[in-house]
Simulated scan of single mutants.
Amino acid sequence: MFTAGAIAAVGLAAAYASHLRTQRERTLSEVEAVANTTQEVLLRPVARHVAHLEIATLYLAAAPHAKVGGDFYAAADTPFGLRLLLGDVRGKGLPAVGVAAALLGSFHEVAYEAHGLAEVAERLDTSMGRYCRSRTGSRADAEEFATAILVEIPREGTHLSFLNCGHPPALLFHEDAPRSLDPPAASPPINLAEILGTTYTVERVPFGPGDTLLLYTDGVTETRAPSGAFFPLERWAGGVPAGFMPQELLRRLHRALLAQSRGKLDDDIACLAVRYEGPAPPA
Rank of each mutant, 00 (worst) to 15 (best):
V274R: 05
T38K: 04
L171K: 07
L265D: 10
L249D: 09
F173C: 06
L160P: 01
L215I: 06
L258E: 14
A193M: 12
V34D: 12
E40L: 12
G208R: 11
A111V: 13
M128Q: 10
G239R: 13
A186R: 13
L272K: 02
G93K: 12
A140L: 03
S161R: 15
A96E: 11
A35S: 12
V110E: 07
R135S: 11
T3W: 14
L257E: 07
G219F: 05
E30F: 13
A15P: 11
V68H: 05
L82S: 06
R48Y: 07
G137F: 05
A237S: 08
V89M: 12
A280I: 02
Y112D: 03
R275E: 06
G91N: 01
A185R: 15
A280P: 07
G91V: 07
G87I: 05
S134F: 02
A6K: 15
R130C: 02
I190L: 15
A35I: 10
A76D: 06
E156L: 14
A280Y: 08
S180E: 15
P64L: 11
V46Q: 03
P45A: 11
D141H: 05
E109L: 14
M128S: 10
F2E: 15
V274A: 03
G219P: 09
V31R: 09
R44T: 11
E25R: 00
G70T: 00
A61S: 13
E152A: 13
E32G: 04
A51T: 07
E109A: 14
P188S: 10
G11V: 12
A270C: 14
T136W: 12
T201L: 11
